[in-house]
Design a binder for these strands. Structure first.
Lengths: 181, 181
DNA sequence: TTCATAAATGAATAATTATTCATTTATGTT
DNA sequence: AACATAAATGAATAATTATTCATTTATGAA
């Protein structure tokens, strides 16, 4: 939706703290009042987008994942999906980051987004079941995986570095070597 | 300073977007006008704190680092320092995170904070020189190191999990295994 | 103690921004 | 076309919040 696009763009430019309803409307090509037809207020708009981004992201993470292939292949697929999604949707990454400690996101939205991570846990657990990953807390493993991607994508962006296939393969190798037994 | 403490506390509670000068003053136990004796305006206050937090953090990272000891020992020391600092100063982590895409932080502050990372690069390069770390871009290695800590600390905090010594050792092992050849 | 200077106050003002609503414009049905 | 309904507008209003400044309070030197 154009409202979402506008909000994402503005947050990337000036952060959540610098975004006004007036600007969002202008950027979305509509009158301020029109925003209030679709969303009760700013908080609701931001919660909607927050949840929507999570949904959109998770939808992409398991593209081309095929459980019948080897674990490493599957894990690599998901890892690459997450990386690519975050590179191509960096605005969403920024927006989500900014939301975590904002006064806008409510408990409910937060809980729902946590729920959605389950498929990722399943993936990690498969790695442990097949005796490939270290015998550690699944959450710690997942966090490490996400960290290897998240920090890498942010860093590349802030330093205007385009990640080459070689860069990405090295990043994956670090993550894999760190997680495997 | 009490103003800094107040700002950090409030940002953790409600995010940068939700903090007003009035609240900062109240939290710091002074009148609103008093803030303007010390800082020209909100932007200056936030820039000051941003830079100050970076300085404070980096000061701690090399505590007890002894170049004459083995690389692994030194690397472990720094890694632990970063982790502990972030656990014990989680408010600062949140504040810094929120600032990155805020309308408050100016170019100059941003540049200065980048400069300060140099000692960390040196550390990574030592690891490569001693043929211990993978033969990769130093920035990518450093980013991976930071990611392993950053995401871990955030996750532990958000899930109210206290990291045990065992948890931390496992986290370090993942990071080390990922970076070593 | 008296005076001068510095520091702090917080109510008043200026800006900014969220939200509303009377009016207009588009859409589609008879 | 005439009407009814839905969608959109944006100026006006209500809230919120940054900033100022006339006044008060502390500090310390003479």
């Amino acid at each position: 939706m154009q409202i979402s696009k506008a909000l994402l763009g503005l947050v990337k430019q000036k952060g959540l703290a610098g975004v006004t309803m007036g600007e969002i409307a202008k950027e979305a090509g509509m009158a301020t009042g029109t925003l209030y037809i679709y969303f009760k207020n700013k908080e609701e708009l931001i919660n909607y987008l927050f949840f929507d981004c999570r949904k959109e992201a998770l939808k992409n993470y398991f593209l081309n994942y095929n459980e019948s292939k080897s674990f490493k292949t599957g894990f690599r697929t998901v890892w690459m999906n997450i990386l690519n999604f975050r590179i191509q949707n960096f605005e969403e990454v920024v927006f989500m980051d900014q939301c975590y400690h904002s006064p806008f996101i409510n408990e409910c939205t937060m809980k729902l987004t946590k729920e959605m991570k389950k498929p990722l846990y399943k993936l990690i657990e498969r790695g442990k079941d097949e005796n490939i990953f270290k015998d550690m807390d699944s959450m710690a493993l997942l966090t490490f995986m996400i960290g290897s991607i998240h920090e890498g994508v942010k860093n590349a962006h802030y330093n205007q570095k385009t990640l080459t296939k070689k860069d990405i393969d090295s990043m994956f190798k670090m993550c894999w070597d760190g997680m495997k037994k």
